[in-house]
Nucleic acid binder design. Structure first.
Length: 708
DNA sequence: ATAGCACATATCTTT
DNA sequence: TATGTGCTAT
């Protein structure tokens, strides 16, 4: 595809620092990929390029695009997330930062458990110090580069919290483990080794960064030091799409960059190629309500396009029914399911859509939520493997010492913990010293397992765990609930096999020269990339995902749902102007995902956490320009289905000849949109929204022309 | 020590 | 809603 003038300029820019402010849909990824291709064609070796993306998905996509553009061996080209790259470096140079060779990576859940343990060890009330929140604060401090020492003098930090932080660090270090934030911190520490830094500065002649507005303080420092020699740092970002401040991202890095790299070239990409004019106008109007923007207005050459539609649903069921109806209509007209995306603020909102899609027999795929490697039964098996690798991994030890139940209860465990605490040793060591039969049996089990696992294929190692540890029986006793877990255990074997195959053949491994055990690779993979792609990944399916995970993607049809005060914008940001601005950017991100048709939905009433609540339309809807919006009026009949059975029977709406949301033409009233329908056959009636208002029409009498 | 049950509680986004 | 925690009976 041709590049426009600005894009071309960015791609061909001479070496040196450069900042590309790239609006949504302005061809950002294309510029980045083209520049890499250009550098390679210009004679740079793949090994001299480092490209950093924000998600694993984005890294994969870019690699694929690059491979398609160039007929070239890309081995040696480093492309990945900050976390992934940091991990790779740490595997290679662990000794420089006093890490054990087999260090493990803690995911968010592991970190929380460790916090809980720290709280208990300090004899603090874990009600008063909820692990989830404390872990969140610690992680944010770490993202800004603040260790316990730096916080010591801070009056705003309660002393207990500081103590918890310190204890957490102690436990974590003893376990030879790194949390997500540590990966970045330790990677930054690597740069304190001058020869090593010089080596990488020499090696990576060109550093390119995607989604730069989402970098945090530590990531920025890491980049700055890496590039401070040759200054060949090419960053691409959009302040309007900064949606990760809650995770420590600092948009200010865009300004810092210009300050720290004087003479940096600035290029703005403002021409949008993705969306129709109405979609763009609507999105621009919303984001214009934010202040302190770098200033940038997207425009498009396209003038055509359907208006943005707004559907006001009675409740979340109605919302789901409407959206699924529209999707069925799209598919019936020959559209692909995968071109339809349902985007919501929080993952919990997926359920009514899943139910309606299921009922309608429409394949769908949900991204996010509880992912494969985050499931308890899967994490248990992984914990056994972690112990095999690293006996001092206390988190893993605690997780499975009594799973399945083997008579090691709270009392024994408490004794273990205090012994470990007193002597400053790991739980594994403490268990060895206790010389208690049941504990010994557990230690022996792990040792035997480790022995059996040596020199085995990865999937064989997983199989060995399931063979030597009666986890299957344990879950099988759990009846219905256990069945799914059993399936997940079998799936884990498959996951291990395909990971090993991919890793050994052509995939990651050759491209990323990581030394060390495939097992530890796999465990890191499980923590870093919680596992998306299921077997049905290639099936044509409707896509359901949170707004956050939609960033960087595009779809012909976007249904942005749940636009209600308290839900979106989220309750917790209502009070806080900065939080509200971020919610608005999130809305902007969501709207700009749409290429052809954007449908916005909100419900008047919503069941949330089990309780029914009235919901006000989101303030973002009031910010829309009326002339771009086609409002679908609320239905006249207001009734919540009394029972699931009832809604199921009325859910079989295939007997209505006009799909909900579809366009029709009436001989007198003209064009309209099908809003609702009740009754069956010729007795049924259908509600149509005409420009003059909405009307109920008897199916037996009128004849309506269907428009595609 | 463990299973089962009642009760409380916090509701989001992700590497 | 759904998850987790604490209590009680076994």
């Amino acid at each position: 595809m041709e590049l426009n003038e600005r894009q071309r300029e960015a791609v061909l820019l001479a070496p040196g620092p450069a900042l590309v402010l790239a609006g949504a849909g302005s061809g950002k990824t294309r510029v980045l990929t083209s520049r890499i291709a250009h550098l390679l064609e210009d004679g740079l070796y793949p090994g001299q390029i480092l490209a950093v993306t924000f998600t694993n998905k984005a890294a994969r996509a870019m690699r694929e695009r690059l491979a398609a553009m160039l007929d070239m061996d890309l081995r040696g080209l480093w492309m990945g997330t900050f976390h992934g790259i940091a991990h790779r470096l740490l595997r290679m140079h662990h000794e420089l930062v006093d890490l054990p060779e087999q260090f493990v990576v803690l995911d968010a859940d592991d970190s929380q458990r460790l916090v809980r343990r720290a709280v208990r060890e300090l004899q603090l009330d874990d009600k008063h110090w909820p692990a989830r929140q404390v872990a969140g604060r610690i992680s944010r401090w770490k993202d800004s580069g603040l260790g316990p020492q730096e916080l010591a003098g801070e009056r705003s930090v309660p002393p207990q919290l500081l103590e918890i932080y310190q204890r957490y660090e102690l436990l974590r270090e003893r376990a030879g483990a790194l949390d997500f934030a540590d990966l970045l911190l330790y990677a930054l520490r690597l740069w304190n080794d001058a020869p090593l830094l010089a080596q990488y500065q020499e090696r990576f002649q060109q550093v390119l960064v995607d989604e730069f507005q989402d970098t945090n303080a530590v990531q920025y420092q890491w980049l700055r030091r890496l590039a401070e020699g040759h200054q060949n740092l090419f960053v691409v970002g959009d302040d309007d799409q900064s949606i990760y401040a809650w995770r420590g991202a600092e948009v200010e890095n865009l300004f810092r960059f210009q300050r720290d790299f004087p003479g940096a070239r600035l290029i703005r990409l403002e021409q949008n190629y993705r969306s129709t004019a109405p979609i763009l106008a609507a999105a621009n109007a919303v984001i214009a309500q934010n202040h302190d923007r770098l200033g940038k207005t997207l425009w498009t050459e396209r003038s055509e396009g359907a208006p943005v539609q707004l559907y006001r649903a009675y409740n979340e069921e109605d919302e789901a029914r409407f959206v699924v109806g529209r999707i069925e209509q799209w598919v019936a007209a020959g559209g692909k399911r995968e071109d339809c995306a349902i985007l919501y603020r929080s993952n919990a909102q997926s359920r009514p859509f899943e139910e309606h899609l299921l009922r309608a027999g429409v394949p769908y795929r949900v991204y996010g939520g509880l992912r494969f490697f985050e499931r308890a039964e899967v994490k248990d098996v992984l914990a056994y493997l972690r112990l095999v690798l690293q006996r001092h991994d206390d988190a893993a030890f605690e997780r499975v010492v009594n799973v399945p139940a083997r008579g090691i209860g709270a009392v024994t465990l408490e004794r273990l913990r205090s012994l470990a605490r007193e002597r400053g040793i790991s739980l594994w060591q403490a268990a060895g010293e206790m010389a208690q039969p049941k504990l010994n049996a557990f230690l022996t089990l792990i040792d035997r397992l480790a022995e059996a696992c040596t020199h085995q294929e990865l999937d064989e190692q997983v199989r060995l765990v399931l063979e030597q540890v009666p986890l299957r029986d344990w879950h099988a006793r759990d009846g219905d609930r256990g069945e799914g877990r059993l399936e997940n255990l079998e799936e884990l074997i498959n996951a291990a096999r395909s990971f090993a195959l991919q890793d050994g053949s052509e995939g990651l491994r050759e491209l990323s020269p990581v030394p060390g055990d495939i097992l530890s690779e796999f465990l890191t993979h499980a923590a870093l990339e919680a596992g998306e792609g299921g077997a049905e990944a290639w099936e044509d399916a409707v896509q359901l995902m949170s707004l956050h995970s939609a960033k960087g993607l595009e779809f012909a049809q976007v249904f942005l749902v749940g636009l209600e005060e308290g839900l979106f914008p989220h309750q917790r940001s209502l009070e806080d102007p900065a939080g509200l601005a971020e919610e608005r950017r999130l809305c902007y991100v969501g709207m700009t995902r749409a290429m052809q048709q954007l449908v916005l939905c909100h419900a008047e009433s919503r069941r949330l956490h089990g309780a029914e609540r009235l919901a006000l339309a989101s303030r973002f809807l009031r910010e829309l320009p009326a002339e771009e919006i086609e409002e679908l009026r609320p239905r006249a009949r207001i009734s919540r289905p009394l029972a699931p059975a009832l809604s199921a029977s009325s859910g079989g709406r295939s007997d209505c000849p006009y799909p909900l949301g579809g366009r029709i033409r009436h001989p007198v009233f003209g064009e309209g949109t099908v809003l609702d329908y009740e009754g069956g056959g010729r007795q049924g009636r259908v509600q149509i929204q005409f420009s003059s208002g909405s009307k109920w029409l008897a199916l037996g009498i009128v004849s309506l022309e269907r428009l595609s």
